[in-house]
Design a protein around this nucleic acid. Structure first.
Length: 891
RNA sequence: GGGAUCUUAGCUCAGCUGGUUCAGAGCACCUGCCUUACAAGCAGGGGGUCACUGGUUCGAAUCCAGUAGGUCCCACCA
């Protein structure tokens, strides 16, 4: 035997992963003899690199998949990546910029070519990194949300939704970058921390037909020219009389109504709000409620147009106009005051120019209409969220669901299949192909001469989530022609073997922050196209944070590199480290110490294996002495298996791991192995050896989902295995009966041993110096474990007798023990110790007695509880009696 | 501002429908040990008024109300 005292995972982990891949153990296909268990990965951004959140997420998925596989289910974990339109496009733009290429100088086709090249070159690194972690995905099924078939599926769904009337075009305030002449997504708008200081102007508007004025406050006075109302809070007594009257916009002399709206804060400014529906998102909402006119006074390049109504401003930049208009307001007597004001100003991430809110036609999905089943299924626990608290959040969101804007002003993504054949907003058709679109356009326009060149496809692409919401169906090609029913827009049952078998999938493991973005929408799509939920359970992981509670992020630089962690602590170590402290839905405060703990655990297992591996078998030896230890551990193990199952059934993954951890570290190693361990270089009997290796195998199996590598390594090191005899495929352990009496007897024995060790420790007696243990003649006896008590407490002699005096003593249960220690015992100290025990027990007895003498307790509490209290009372009385006798004998 | 949720040992968390010494676990900490599987270890040990206040009950960490503080989601101030 020449095994190292330290487990070396480096070569082991790569070796086994490669072996599993070669053997095809991760592959899955429909098998009618087995129950399916399927997880689809939350597809990471194709640009992504593995971060700690992925580590946690994917470790949990691998644990679930590996366990299911061992349970004999047909386990499939589908991997994939998301094209992540915004993130990827931003990355490609940045790369091009570094090469001196501006996106604006490229045609759409040229840009897409660059993007695809980038994707082929750098995309999907993250999947390779997952392999290091041990992820047992069926890599042959790797999906990408912009694959041809996937792309077509997304378009197909858009067309179907449009034809079902679920999609409409509507005006929406978007963020407009006047420099780049493009809309930018919310994510691309940046705000300076703490806001910026600007001028807040108080402007007075005359009231029509009266000699009074109304004062509003604004930081964007140039938008005054687009005002179409003044709003006040309906509860505001100051302005009650003004409601319904007309105010007059300075310079343009437009009469605008004074309206009442709850949105207006009475405390802010003067309590009067100027309403410019074309240039402010909230004003737009107010405008909708009150049917106000929308006057769009600003051009795409940021200059004012003729609609502003003041000739000298037309064609000038909005900020130039701001300066001039302030001057004019002042001179005209409209300006009451100007003051400093701190507010947030949005700037474009790309050009750093100040964002202008701009109205634009966008595509929307009517969420109320499509989300009913998705709402119901979660409320009725057809889909169970873990932890359950997210059910409330989900409910709240679904009850107040807003329409989903699915168009994005980007190029990288699925382009909206709407084709315009004329100038009007309504002159378009929606179709899956240009051929179909042309035909429809000819019919719709009545112009049979239309050519494909006359069609202009909408330039926008779809929101990334409008593709990933199809993931659980699309990874099984559900939307391909042969499986899709054009008539009713549903997947045809019985035509797609994968979908029939694996759908609905089993568990979805993802982060709570995308519960609505992704999870809810997958549920909607699932019901819409499959008529069925997409998964049964949703496990929501926490956010990985650093020690001081900050979210781990690249920009903060507080996230360790996962691959380096694996290098340092092994994949098994990092996996267990992530799970040691991460209950579902709770944030995980990450500390490398956890990985160290995981690594240490691996080492502990390794050394236990080393010990067992080194034993020689002597067939002539009797197993009798060890029998009780073997029986005891069988019960202990079974109890642990039951507990693990219970934890898994509640998705308490870290508790399941902790149960096995403690079984190994607190029971198997220090008690079981020490009990049966032969003397140095002594052989062991065959039956005990067999039982022990059996136990080790069982524990390895329990551990395999968490620590796939070391368990496989030891599994094969224990003995020669047949080809295909991988622990990955071994049967998941089943509990046998638990003998609670045996467990109790053992824990009493262990307590006695601990007490002896305690005496040694406090009296500075070396651990192995032989001592004599004396039991009181009234003791209930040591039972089956006497031999092991002798062995582990190093008390070769156990006798019975009265307190010999000059002895250390202790009580376990009702039983008294003494250890004679000529001279080295301080009598007063011993007496004090006993007295303390008596006092404590008396206090306990008093509380129990008080309870029992309370008539209302005895009458109202359930009989079993009362019975229990009586038993406690008896035990305590007996113990006090024994202790007092002991004390008396000491004089 | 609306909603959700949380507060238990130094840290991270268990504690299910009130009832066993119910006040727990892991880590950290303290003491002593390189004892032939393991110092990435072994043996022993200390530590909490269960946020606060009140209520319901024979009995409250657990149920109810209020207070304080934290976190998350949604909406966001002209």
């Amino acid at each position: 035997m020449s095994l190292s005292a330290k487990y070396d995972p480096k070569s082991v982990e790569d070796k086994w992963y490669q072996n599993w891949m070669e053997k095809g153990y991760f592959k899955s296909s429909p098998n009618p003899d087995k129950e399916p268990y399927c997880i689809v990965i939350p597809p990471p951004n194709v640009t992504g690199v593995l971060h700690m959140g992925h580590m946690l997420n994917n470790t949990i998925q691998d644990v679930l998949i590996r366990k299911a596989r061992m349970e004999g289910k047909e386990a499939l974990w589908v991997p994939g990546t998301d094209h992540a339109s915004i993130a990827t496009e931003a990355k490609v733009v940045r790369m091009l910029r570094e090469q001196g290429i501006k996106k604006g100088d490229l045609s759409r086709e040229e840009f897409m070519k660059h993007a695809w090249e980038w994707k082929e070159k750098y995309g999907g690194i993250i999947l390779e990194q997952l392999k290091k972690l041990g992820a047992s995905c069926d890599w042959d099924r790797t999906a990408f949300t912009m694959d041809d078939d996937y792309y077509k599926a997304v378009i197909r769904v858009f067309v179907d939704f449009y034809r079902k009337g679920y999609i409409y075009r509507g005006l929406r305030m978007i963020n407009w970058d006047v420099e780049a002449q493009t809309a930018v997504s919310n994510e691309e708008v940046q705000y300076e921390e703490g806001g910026e200081t600007v001028k807040l102007y108080s402007v007075q508007y005359p009231i029509k037909g009266e000699n009074i004025k109304v004062t509003i406050a604004t930081v964007r006075p140039e938008t005054i020219l687009g005002d179409t109302a003044i709003a006040v809070n309906p509860k505001d007594e100051r302005y009650k009389d003004l409601i319904g009257k007309k105010a007059i916009v300075p310079f343009v002399a437009r009469e605008i109504p004074i309206i009442a709206d709850d949105y207006v804060e009475m405390e802010f400014g003067t309590g009067c709000l100027k309403v410019t529906p074309a240039h402010d998102p909230n004003d737009y909402e107010i405008g909708l409620r009150h049917e106000l006119e929308v006057i769009d006074t600003i051009n795409d390049d940021g200059t004012l147009n003729e609609k502003c109504g003041v000739a000298k401003f037309v064609g000038k930049d909005r900020f130039e106009v701001r300066k001039e208009i302030v001057k004019d307001l002042n001179e005209g007597g409209y300006l009451l005051k100007e003051e400093e004001f701190t507010t947030r100003i949005g700037r474009s991430e790309r050009t750093n120019s100040i964002i202008e809110p701009k109205l634009s036609l966008q595509w929307f999905i009517r969420m109320k209409e499509v989300s009913k089943e998705a709402h119901r299924s979660v409320m009725e626990d057809e889909i169970v969220l873990h932890p359950a608290k997210f059910k409330n959040t989900y409910n709240h969101w679904m009850e107040n669901v807003r329409d989903w804007c699915i168009s994005r002003q980007l190029w990288w993504g699925q382009r909206i299949p709407a084709y315009f054949y004329g100038e009007g907003d309504e002159d378009f058709v929606v179709a899956e192909t240009t051929e179909e679109a042309l035909q429809m356009a000819r019919e719709q326009s009545g112009n049979v001469d239309l050519q494909s060149g006359d069609l202009n496809q909408d330039p926008d692409v779809l929101d990334t989530w409008a593709s990933s919401w199809l993931f659980p169906i699309a990874v099984f090609n559900g939307f391909k022609d042969e499986y899709y029913n054009q008539e009713n827009g549903k997947i045809k049952p019985g035509t797609n073997a994968d979908l029939d078998y694996y759908y609905p999938t089993s568990t979805l493991v993802t982060a709570p922050e995308i519960l609505f973005f992704w999870v809810a929408r997958m549920i909607i799509a699932g019901f819409e196209y499959m008529g069925e939920k997409p998964f049964s359970d949703v496990y929501l992981t926490g956010i990985v944070r650093d020690k001081i509670g900050r979210k781990m992020s690249k920009s903060l630089g507080n996230s360790p590199d996962p691959l380096e962690l694996i290098e340092q602590y092994s994949a098994d170590g990092v996996r267990t480290g992530m799970l040691f402290s991460s209950p579902a839905g709770n944030d995980l405060p990450f500390d490398v110490k956890l990985c160290e703990q995981g690594r240490n655990f691996a080492n502990k297992i390794w050394n236990a294996f080393r010990l067992i591996n080194g034993w020689e078998i002597d067939e002539s030896l009797s197993s009798e002495d060890n029998a009780i230890a073997v029986e005891w551990f069988q019960s202990k193990l079974s109890g642990a298996i039951e507990e693990v199952e219970d934890h898994f059934s509640k998705f308490r993954i870290s508790d399941a791991l902790m149960t096995i951890y403690k079984l190994f570290w607190d029971d198997f190693a220090p008690w079981y192995l020490e009990m049966i361990k032969p003397g140095f270089e002594q052989p062991i009997d065959k039956a005990t050896f067999k039982a022990t290796t059996g136990y080790l195998e069982t524990i390895l199996k329990l551990l395999h989902p968490f620590m796939p590598f070391i368990t496989e390594e030891i599994w094969h090191s224990m003995k020669d295995r047949q080809d295909g005899d991988s622990i990955m495929l071994a049967a998941w352990p089943v509990a046998s009966e638990v003998d609670t009496d045996k467990l109790k007897a053992a824990s009493t024995a262990f307590e006695i041993i601990s007490q002896v060790r305690n005496v040694r420790s406090s009296k500075n007696i070396p651990p192995k110096e032989p001592l004599t243990l004396v039991g009181n003649p009234n003791n209930s006896g040591l039972g089956d474990f006497e031999g092991f008590i002798k062995k582990l407490s190093h008390c070769p002699e156990i006798t019975s007798g009265e307190n010999p005096g000059g002895a250390a003593n202790f009580v376990v249960g009702r039983d008294e023990f003494y250890i004679p220690l000529e001279g080295s015992v301080d009598l007063d100290q011993e007496k004090e110790k006993i007295q303390k025990e008596i006092d404590y027990t008396k206090g306990f007895l008093a509380s129990v007695s008080k309870k029992l003498s309370n008539e209302r307790f005895v009458n109202n509490a359930p009989p079993a509880v009362v019975e229990n209290e009586k038993k406690k009372q008896e035990d305590a009385e007996a113990k006090i009696k024994a202790l007092e006798e002991s004390l008396a004998k000491l004089g």
